[in-house]
Design a protein around this nucleic acid. Structure first.
Length: 577
RNA sequence: GACUCAGUAGCUCAGCAGGUAGAGCACAUCCCUUUUAAGGAUGGGGUCCAGGGUUCGAGCCCCUGCUGGGUCACCA
């Protein structure tokens, strides 16, 4: 009997599975299949004159098949790429028994199956380096057909491109779209390169709590959870800043963490509810020093990934070569608007913003207005990596007051491709000042600012013991990855971006059908005919239903004995009772 | 959250002026036998996202919802 839930191709593959078993072939063998090379190595190092690679063992997934009489070609894809396998009947089956070729290979294997191949490398008439298979072993049977993508001269045909499917079924995306794999390899190179850089400087990689009794270190709304044993509300961290600073207080001079942070806010091309930041704190340094470090580090990353400081991103070429431009906030605003706002008071700033066609409201203070003008008129125009320094104090409750400029803090952000990629301060280590800044945040919070920071008594206590002057940095790994991989969306650099869960179709349990007298074997037929719930059958015409059911039975060659019209009528009567 | 576009075969996509649902690849059967996104022939495969409405008749028109993309807003 056919399984009505499955597509025709799935049914055929399951049948193949059974036939393989009948032939004594385990479609899911347990033992190791030892490989001694991979596609990339063969393609780059095979040399016909040297006659190397004459005893290779390789494993991977069948991506295409061109089957002919007694000689066929398949494309095998492994971790590193694709290579063509030449399968000739008499090479694979030198003996009388040709079952492995005629039946197993030709009939029972499919695109998507994972196989092991042993053989020797040669170059075909057409000039393609290939493996002549002398052994073929099924390693895992695929019972769901893969999207089929073809490619010629770098041109992709029938691409698997539906964004929803690519994100929800990332495994398929990875199998079928080599560029997806490349993106994630680059992302890992990026973090490896950064980690190597920081380790070489002697900084210590640490881990700090993700579940925090208070959330701090950034302005954002948190995810809230509950610990049963402690009977306590906990928050997923929005940042790890306050914990890393405690470690600086504790006497580490340089600590860093690659941190997954969580923010309960909107999602977009640039925002995922969980994202990765690298935060670094170094004692006895200031923000000027940190700018030098960022330049050096990101330049190295670009070279490690691309072999050059120049990276193509969308329509732009971004050059990470040091030194990068540095502007103060006031300078950059003057550059892009022609207006010097450095001496303006709140009223004048509001006036200026209005003249620049910006929407403002009364609640905006001086700092917010400056930030808005920058965000609106400058940020998106900064394509090459650029440091913006000296932010208004209102926006930065954890940054040290500027050594010489009133009303500002020692803070910089790095803007690249029109987006912020890092944020850094000379960290505030004056405990009295810090307390006052928190208190100002509390006032904001009471006024309804949901992102205002909460006062962390434990943290204050820690820095009261004395925190050395410290430079701190947060760098957005996802955003930097987007730039380094030329990805337009954050979803492209996260293996499993957050998605709304797929809604399941509502379906009644078979028992409910059986309870009203429908024979068990008819339940799938009824559901296949479109009646997924008993309720949906309430108002149907019994005659029509009878016809439909018999039709489904016939169409799908179920071979069931049709119910009588009376039977069907009775079912509906029961439902309507 | 707002606006906007989209959802049709396993995959990529057509479909019109409302009139029996199409192509290529994939799949099956047969022929060919060193091919390169595609050798040839034949064939099977659809809840046209869901639910309502208009209509003699809806994949198409209208309404509601679901899911996704894009832009904007909050934000990194």
């Amino acid at each position: 009997m056919m399984n009505l839930e499955l597509s025709e191709q799935e049914v055929i593959r399951r049948q193949s599975l059974e036939e393989l078993r009948k032939l004594g072939i385990n479609p899911y063998p347990a033992e190791e299949f030892e490989t001694n090379t991979n596609s990339q190595e063969i393609l780059s190092k095979y040399d016909a004159d040297k006659n190397n690679f004459q005893d290779v063992s390789i494993a991977g997934r069948i991506m295409s098949r061109r089957i002919m009489g007694n000689a066929s070609f398949i494309e095998l894809q492994d971790d590193k790429g694709k290579i063509q396998i030449y399968v000739k009947r008499d090479n694979l089956c030198p003996d009388e028994d040709k079952t492995l070729y005629n039946t197993v290979f030709k009939k029972l294997l499919d695109i998507g199956d994972i196989i092991g191949i042993k053989g020797n490398v040669f170059i075909t008439k057409v000039g393609e380096t290939s493996i002549n298979a002398t052994e073929l072993k099924l390693l895992s049977k695929s019972i769901k057909p893969l999207p089929v993508v073809k490619e010629k001269d770098g041109k992709i045909y029938d691409a698997f491109s539906d964004a929803e499917q690519r994100y929800r079924q990332r495994h398929l995306d990875l199998i079928v779209n080599p560029s997806t794999k490349e993106t994630f390899v680059k992302r890992t190179k990026l973090t490896n390169s950064m980690r190597e850089f920081l380790n070489n400087k002697g900084y210590l990689e640490v881990e700090t709590p993700i579940l925090q009794p208070l959330y701090g270190g950034a302005a954002a709304r948190p995810f809230k959870t509950f610990h049963n044993t402690l009977g306590q509300t906990l928050y997923l961290r929005i940042a790890n800043e306050l914990y890393l600073k405690r470690l600086i207080v504790g006497g580490f001079d340089g600590v860093y963490e690659f941190a997954k942070d969580f923010r309960n806010e909107g999602m977009s091309r640039f925002h995922n509810p969980e994202f990765t930041q690298m935060e670094l704190y170094v004692a006895y340094k200031d923000y000027n020093w940190m700018m030098d470090l960022v330049e050096e580090m990101v330049e190295k990353i670009a070279i490690d990934i691309h072999g050059t400081t120049k990276v193509k991103v969308g329509e732009h070429e971004i050059d990470f070569k040091r030194p990068w431009k540095r502007y103060t906030m006031f300078e950059v605003i003057q550059e892009f608007t022609g207006i010097d706002i450095s001496m303006m008071n709140e009223k004048e700033l509001a006036e200026t913003a209005k003249n620049l066609d910006m929407e403002i409201d009364e609640t905006m203070g001086k700092g917010k207005l400056i930030d808005e003008i920058f965000g609106e008129k400058c940020e998106s125009k900064l394509i090459q990596p650029t440091f913006i320094t000296d932010y208004p104090i209102e926006m930065s409750p954890l940054a040290k007051k500027h050594r010489s400029k009133d009303g500002l803090v020692e803070r910089f952000e790095t803007i690249c491709n029109g987006k912020e990629i890092c944020n850094a301060y000379s960290e505030l280590n004056d405990p009295i000042d810090q307390r006052e800044r928190f208190e100002q945040q509390l006032i904001l919070g009471k006024r309804g600012d949901e992102e205002a920071m909460v006062l962390d008594e434990d943290f204050l206590k820690a820095i009261e013991y004395g925190m050395p002057p410290t430079a701190g940095l947060g760098i957005g790994i996802d955003r930097l990855s987007m730039i380094m991989t030329n990805s337009p969306s954050i979803q492209d650099v996260l293996f499993f971006p957050q998605m709304r869960p797929e809604k399941k179709v509502q379906k009644d349990d078979p028992a409910k059908y059986i309870a009203i007298g429908i024979p068990e074997e008819w339940v799938p037929v009824v559901q296949k005919s479109g009646y997924l719930t008993l309720e949906s059958m309430r108002d149907v015409n019994p005659g029509a239903l009878h016809q439909k059911l018999c039709g489904t039975n016939k169409k799908h060659k179920m071979g069931l004995k049709n119910p009588s019209q009376d039977d069907v009528k009775k079912w509906i009567e029961i439902i309507n009772k």
